[in-house]
Amino acid sequence: MRRIEVDVNGSRHVRHVDERRLLSDFLRHDLGLRGTKVGCEHGVCGACTVLLDGAAVRSCLLLAVQVDGCRVDTVEGLAGPEGLHPLQEALHRHHGLQCGYCTAGILMTAVEMAGEAGPHSVEEIKQRLSGHICRCTGYAGIVAALSEVVGS
């Protein structure tokens, strides 16, 4: 077991974790933040994507002990007192989700894109979404929502 100190969505958490604890499981089981979903657990599906010090990463491919001293942002941190994040609003409006399992990961990739120099072309948006597998809605609504916020 190791002691780690992590800033998650602006709150400091100190925990003792097993060395083999994945960041995804640390968020879900140790901190109770179940917005981050776990799909394939080998980095392909994109469901578990979170921000680590501002960069999108697969939380299933990181050990919790590796984020000691870092800042992690998850989907729970997106909505504020004024309501949903503009990206969440856009997905809602464009019917960009059905079961919602892939949504948290897609949002974190979109948040990373929103922080980059834009605007992003539809082609770029589609390319970034290729790292996120959605099996129910199809991508049309997702692309439309992201285009509205981070597109040209």
Binding site: G46, A55, A56, V57, R58, L61, T109, R128, S130, G131
Partner: peptide, 9 residues
Amino acid sequence: VGHVPTRNR
């Protein structure tokens, strides 16, 4: 090479 989240790391 993979996707942006895997290349970030």
